[in-house]
């Protein structure tokens, strides 16, 4: 990582107090975790109308995808630009499994996560020897490859037409359609809880610490016996499972699959959630997903101006607070705390 010919410095956390995994006592985090998600679970009581619930479900899906991306991008320092392809693989795996082979939707949901994980392992092979920008290019290429294969196999995948009338999820005899998205809300929330729990336990574990060590000082970590091949594969595979499940849930919820999930616009939005939230936090990406999704809805009246306003805001936050909203909150808190302390 000390390549002096490189025009730019390698990625490194340069905060005064680097946030080590396991720094917050786990009990404190568990309390916050339970309280935070309990609050989310109460939301359907406040928001009765279907549309508000729909927005929240979409925010949950984006939060799963963004927070899993934070695992590979933030903690792992692997610039995986094929993350949305893993989501897309989940979408198409679920659609094809339920529609063509008539698999049970719940089994298909789980299987989609496994398929996305396998795809992540495959894409890790070519990037094992690569660094930085080369990883961006290969993973970007992988995403395009997946898209092209889906487009070219239009007999099975519907090509640009996509797939419609995908079987949705079921819950015993519960009517999923006429309950004001009540059931889908809680399934989405349960998936988010499971994904977040998995991610936090993963990054707080010894494996998580070794992944961060590889990111921050590769040579030293390797010299201490951390295998870059195994850890990198593990990171990408771990970030893929819930991403694939989120894709499958998205397909089950929307009841259709389209090639748009591979497009640049969705990737840009999700990536900005990860970066706006502040990398290597998991929670930051989740909060940013809520903020951005709700913000996008709030601006629905602006029509064609909406993507432009979003773009300007993303640039503005990135220029002013490179560590994202987390850095912004930290800076604001610092200013407030400074003002309180001064008179004393």
């Amino acid at each position: 990582m000390t390549d002096m010919t490189s025009p730019i410095a390698p990625i490194r956390t340069q905060t005064a107090n680097p946030v080590a995994p396991g720094r917050t006592p786990w009990k404190a985090e568990a309390v916050g975790f339970v309280l935070g998600f309990a609050l989310l679970a109460l939301l359907p009581l406040v928001f009765g109308d279907t549309y508000a619930r729909h927005i929240l479900i979409m925010a949950f899906i984006y939060a799963i995808v963004a927070s899993n991306w934070d695992l590979s991008l933030g903690y792992g320092g692997v610039f995986n630009f094929g993350h949305l392809a893993l989501f897309g693989i989940g979408v198409y795996a679920y659609s094809l499994l339920t529609k063509l082979s008539g698999l049970d939707p719940w089994i298909a949901l789980f299987a989609s996560g496994i398929i996305a994980t396998l795809a992540a392992i495959v894409v890790t092979i070519p990037i094992l020897r690569l660094k930085g920008i080369y990883i961006i290019l290969v993973t970007f290429g992988f995403a395009q490859l997946v898209m092209q294969v889906i487009l070219s196999q239009s007999d099975i995948t519907g090509g640009t037409q996509g797939i419609v009338r995908i079987p949705g999820l079921y819950w015993f005899d519960h009517n999923m359609v006429r309950d004001g998205k009540f059931a889908y809300f809680y399934i989405a929330l349960a998936l988010l809880v499971a994904s977040t729990l998995f991610l936090r336990v993963f990054v707080r574990s010894r494996t998580g610490a070794s992944i961060v060590a590889l990111r921050d000082n590769e040579e030293y970590a390797i010299s201490r016996g951390v295998s870059i091949v195994r850890q990198r594969m593990l990171t990408l595979a771990a970030s893929a499972f819930f991403t694939g499940i989120a894709g499958a849930f998205y397909a089950a919820y929307q009841r259709n699959a389209s090639i748009d999930v591979f497009g640049m616009s969705l990737a840009t939005i999700i990536l900005s959630m990860v970066l706006l939230g502040g990398t290597s936090t998991i929670y930051g990406a989740i909060v940013a997903s809520f903020v951005l999704t709700i913000f996008a809805e709030w601006m629905a009246d602006f029509g064609a101006w909406r993507p432009m306003i979003t773009a300007v805001l993303i640039i503005g936050v990135m220029l002013a607070y490179p560590s994202g909203l987390a850095g912004m909150i930290k800076a604001a808190w610092g200013a407030v705390a400074g003002r309180i302390k001064r008179p004393a």
Binding site: S265, L271, P307, M308, T310, V312, I314, I315, M318
Partner: peptide
């Protein structure tokens, strides 16, 4: 991300 956003703009 900033060039992507500028491109989208």
């Amino acid at each position: 991300i900033t060039t992507l956003a500028a491109g989208s703009l």
